[in-house]
Amino acid sequence: MDTIYRFSAVTLSGAPLVLDTFRGQVLLIVNTASRCGFTPQYQGLQALYREYRDRGFAVLGFPCNQFGAQEPGDSQAIGEFCAMNYQIDFPIFEKIEVNGDGAHPLYAFLKASAPGVLGSEAIKWNFTKFLIGRDGCVKQRYAPLTAPETLHGDIEALLAETV
């Protein structure tokens, strides 16, 4: 079975992080942007993280500048924005691409595992969300319009499962 655990990404501090670090946790992986109409979702994402982290849940943020150039900053600017405006303390990674030939391998896997509307794999906009079970497999894909606050039931169900 193929899982997210075979991938790694670089944190905002420049350190590589193998996603196997999160083995056994429920994860919400989100492509983010600082200058998007959906940017206030950071508040809901942080609230989910705060509520469930002690039960084995994490949010992983992947900044992306592919949609309207809404994430123009470097890693330092992204980190400062997230900390100052939303008090984010869940893991945020270096800016990546989610579509096209330069798409991060993690996102190629996520998109293939959970295609969107009409079977399209492409990420349509910032704040597309992927819910990952404790087994490292994609369980659900959510559109950018889906507010983090609406995900409690799905997160609770996965937290209740054992691997």
Rank of each mutant, 00 (worst) to 15 (best):
I88Q: 05
K129G: 03
A58M: 05
S75E: 15
L19Q: 09
L60E: 08
L110E: 05
P72C: 06
E94Y: 06
N65G: 07
P105S: 07
G136H: 08
V98E: 13
G102Q: 15
T39D: 11
D89W: 10
Y49W: 12
S113E: 13
E94L: 03
K124E: 09
E121I: 08
L45Y: 06
Q25M: 14
A143N: 07
Q41I: 08
G24R: 07
A108K: 14
F81L: 00
S120V: 14
K124F: 05
P105K: 10
N126H: 12
S120W: 01
G44F: 00
I4M: 09
E97N: 13
D135I: 10
M1S: 11
T32P: 07
G133P: 07
T162M: 09
I88D: 11
V18D: 15
R53P: 01
E71D: 14
I155S: 05
F62D: 10
P144L: 05
I78K: 03
V138Q: 13
Y142S: 06
Q66N: 10
D20H: 08
G14R: 04
F81W: 05
E156Q: 15
N65L: 03
F67S: 06
Q46C: 00
F67I: 05
N99K: 06
I96D: 15
W125G: 00
G24A: 03
Y5V: 00
G119T: 13
D101N: 15
I96R: 10
P63L: 03
Q25K: 15
T128M: 05
Q43A: 12
M84Y: 11
L151N: 09
P91S: 04
F62S: 04
C82K: 02
T21Q: 11
G100R: 15
P63I: 05
D74F: 10
Q41M: 03
Y49S: 01
E51Y: 01
G44S: 03
L28R: 02
E161S: 11
S75W: 10
H152L: 07
N126K: 04
P115F: 00
E156L: 14
P144V: 02
G119C: 04
S120R: 08
Q76C: 00
V18E: 15
P16C: 04
D154Y: 04
V59A: 02
D101R: 15
Q140K: 15
A77M: 12
R134I: 09
S8F: 12
F22L: 04
D101M: 05
G73L: 08
